[in-house]
Design a protein around this nucleic acid. Structure first.
Lengths: 257, 257
DNA sequence: CCAAAAGTGTTCGATTTACACCCATGT
DNA sequence: ACATGGGTGTAAATCGAACACTTTTGG
């Protein structure tokens, strides 16, 4: 039963042994960066989505497969950021206690074996995600990055590593394009950058800098959001965006102002 | 025999299955960036150093162990940069032909199994490297990055990925400190950066920028290197260097001038 | 009318870039 | 003497940081 819970089929020989992919699925909603986690009613900690890799499947395909099963989305922007291979990353005692507690069948000792976890982060448009729970007794939900619940094994560390990776490469990662909907405002885009940089940015200088890179198109629409002037809506110029990415250009040569 | 050649002991059950570490060991000598490769007389392609991981060993320890066995050095600067998991990264036909050609024993079919390779690059001081050949019939030698021989499987791709990683993180990687000897000249340091950036840098602006970050100490010595003025020698201020690194500061906020 | 937040523009100083000029050395 | 490449300096252009002023909207 927990075998299913942890995303494993019964025929474990179809999988690469000792290897899993761990997905940090990031979305942005109501001013906060969020990560998709799942939890099994029978276990008290949350887990990152992910799982095993078929023998005849590339790692990337395994990632796409797991993402599809959790979010319903295809063609998600993903990036491998780190592989976790500490020999003590899984707490053997905890694994044994899970085996006892849930009365796993004989032959579950593979479960306490060491796993190497290949970490990918995924950037998704929050509103497009259809949360799927594959099984009964399973909950999948978004959690704000700044208020995470208790997580299984080293999954908290994995999330932090993903955020670090984006922090250091922020000029090369299309966080705006991938996280925001087609139409968005500059304040929203700014909030995305502020979330990853962990600091406030000057509203006016931010706008100037973003517009100067020529990837945005101002729409003749505004969005009413409060007791103040309605901000303009913008859209991404997708052609230029992918062109810039493929050429490996810096989207922004950020100096952390 | 080839089992030994490919860095494998006879008791393969002591290792994590399906996982190897691949090391891109980089050095700098006579103005060129170089990578350490090894070759077995009985096989026509060169390989990256690396090998398997013991069951009770962390990935990092395995990397250190393989580096020690090739270079004689401990405490080498290393960084994990990517994990290679394409299901076709090893050419099954080629592996089979190796088995036939070298008349490997029965039970060598594990050799055509899929491997996931965890890539690390290492930065070493060229002159300190003592090349060890573990076995007879084995050659270990430096090769300039711009003139590589035929390489096994996807090892050329792995090298390129390592160089890409450094390129994008150049402001955070202590390439100067790790690759150069204790005493070095600004032209030498500039050549290191030029090697990774793949372009020439302005001699005068480079020097100003480097000195402005305050990590270098000018020595009252020069080095005679040719029919021109002898350049000054500098040394790194190690304390400041490690301090800057640990704080995650940018060593250089490079704008690719 | 006021608070809140958006849009536009300006100033000042720091940084980058592109050079000019002199210096030391081996042939 | 001169070609080569190092060391220092400087002016112009660019960029970033900080901030002033105006606009719009809901309450």
């Amino acid at each position: 039963m927990l075998r299913t819970a942890f995303g494993l089929s019964d025929s474990k020989n179809d999988y690469l042994p000792g290897i899993s992919v761990d997905c940090v699925i990031l979305g942005f909603f109501e001013g906060s960066l969020r990560v998709l986690l799942n939890k099994y009613d029978s276990y008290d900690k949350w887990l990152l989505p992910g799982g095993l890799v078929f023998r005849d499947e590339s790692i990337e395909d395994a990632v796409d497969r797991h993402l599809k099963s959790r979010t319903g989305l295809r063609d998600i922007y993903t990036k491998q950021f780190y592989t976790f291979g500490a020999h003590d990353r899984i707490n053997v005692e905890e694994q044994k206690s899970i085996i006892n507690q849930y009365n796993l069948p004989e032959g579950s000792d593979w479960f306490i074996n060491r796993f190497v976890g290949i970490g990918y982060y995924a950037l998704v448009e929050y509103s497009k995600v259809q949360i799927y729970s594959e099984n009964e007794g399973e909950t999948v939900s978004w959690h704000t990055i700044n208020n995470l619940p208790a997580l299984y094994a080293d999954h908290k560390h994995i999330i932090q590593k993903a955020l670090d990776d984006i922090y250091y490469q922020i000029g090369f990662v299309p966080i705006g394009y991938e996280l925001l909907p087609d139409k968005f405002t500059m304040p929203e885009l700014r909030q995305v950058y502020e979330s990853f940089l962990g600091k406030e940015l000057d509203r006016r200088n931010f706008q100037r800098k973003m517009l100067s890179i020529g990837l945005f198109e101002k729409l003749n629409e505004t969005r009413k959001v409060g007791a103040h002037k309605a901000p303009n809506l913008y859209s991404f110029n997708k052609e230029r965006y992918t062109e810039a990415l493929n050429q490996g250009l810096q989207l922004i040569d950020w100096k952390f102002s």
